[in-house]
Structure formats: C-alpha cells, structure tokens
Design a protein around this nucleic acid. Structure first.
Lengths: 112, 112
DNA sequence: TCAATAATACAACAACTGTTGAAGTGTTGG
DNA sequence: CCAACACTTCAACAGTTGTTGTATTATTGA
C-alpha cells in the first residue's frame, strides 16, 4: 500500500460521522444499505450524508450501485484489510516486541 | 477500544507530516529520537514539529521523555496494536469473507 | 552568571473541512 | 405526463487545522 492511500483512509475515517457510516456499512455486509436508510439510521441530513458518502467512495472504502431510484452503498473490506497489513508491516505494530527488538540491532546514529 | 480513541488515532495520522513522524519513530524502536533529529530528518520547522509531536503524544501514539535539554520521543506500538485489533474486530476487516458471510445470515430489514 | 542551544508556547494568518439551505437530476407510480 | 420521491450538487457560511514568525522557558557549557 502507498503512503498516500493510507493517508486517504485515515482522512476518511477521521470524522465521527464517516466512521459511523463505515461501521454501519460493514455491519450490513454484502447487502449494503441505501442512502435513505443510512440517513434515517444515523440521523444525518441527506445532503450531508451524500457529502460524506462521496468521500468514503472516493477513498475506496465504499462502493455505490444504482438500484432504481436508490443508491446502494457497500463497504469495501479489501481496502481495510490492506490498511491493516500496511500498519502491521510498515509500522511494525502487531508484534511490538519483534519490531522494537529488531530496531535495537540496527546501527544507531546519535545526535551530531 | 473506544470509538473515540480510534477516531483520535485516525485524526492524528491523517496528515502527511504526522504519519511521517510516527513511521520514523517506529523505525527507531525503543531508542526513539530527539526532537531536533526528527526536525532535521523530516525537514520541518522546529516549532511546527513541536505542534505535531504534541498531537501525537496527546493521542497516545508517542511518548516524551526529557533527556538533559533534549526531548526524546518514542512511538507507542501498543496503541497501534489496539487499533489493529479494533479494526479487525469492530469492522470485521481481516476476514472479509467470514464477516460478509456472517452478515448474510443476519435478518435483513428492507427499506420501508 | 551569561551566552548559546533545544524546544515549546503564543498569535496571526491562510487554507481546508463540515454543515446548512436551496436548487437540480434522475426515477417511479398514478 | 406529471407529481412525488431519492439523492446529489452547489454556494455560502462557520469552525477547525496547519503554518509561519516571534517570544519564552529551560538546560548546558564556558
């Protein structure tokens, strides 16, 4: 995963509303949810919701599909999977001991 | 992990500079790094760096320790670990098939 | 003690983000 | 066809965030 991608995901989920939307979508699984239902459930104005959904879709965390006059949104768990892999590998989290143990072995450059 | 905590972490890493700082700190392991070295490495103004470091520390992603007239910063891998756990559990990512398979079994509430 | 260094704190500003209300696009049922 | 519906787009505004320059605090070495 590119640093830029990770950044976009962080930006996308750095808002309470969007984190709620994303979690709701994941809970719905492949069924997804139409915009109106999301708006009702989370009690956010339709136009505002539309704004946040757009961000999530643009980030790749969700997908849209037209269904008659409804717009069905689904979570994209693949990207979250990739983010977790990135965080675990790039940032050495997950196995803190191993990561920090390794760091101890690398040559250290002291300040000036 | 609380939703609020996850949110704070996302906010903290939603900036290129802070993501860079955090990754640099993780790379340094338990040795950490003093503020001046971080500023030099990432080429950010000291006062600006201080601002971002404060955010990271406040979020719990990093710790500070005074060392003479230096401030040594270290990454806190535990929180990232917890975030990964949260993302994997709460958001069902990591095992998309399993999560989405489960969702299919749950009763669905159709729109109106 | 005094000058130099390391870092933080503060204030001002620009830039970005989220919210709201109103208007617009597309779809469906009568 | 047209009215109702589902949703999006747009523009305006408010609030927040990040950056920059300046000042301050604290520590060290001479």
């Amino acid at each position: 995963m590119e640093k830029r991608t990770a950044l976009t995901v962080f930006e996308s989920l750095a808002t309470g509303v969007r984190l709620d939307i994303y979690r709701l979508l994941v809970k719905q699984g492949p069924d997804g949810m139409v915009a109106g239902d999301i708006a009702d459930t989370l009690e956010v104005a339709p136009n505002n919701l539309s704004f946040h959904l757009k961000v999530l879709v643009h980030a790749g965390l969700a997908t849209v599909e037209q269904e008659g006059r409804f717009q069905r949104y689904r979570a994209n768990p693949t990207l979250m999977s990739a983010l977790i892999t990135y965080l675990t590998k790039e940032c050495c989290a997950g196995q803190p001991e191993q990561c920090f143990g390794l760091a101890t072995l690398t040559p250290k450059t002291s300040r000036r």
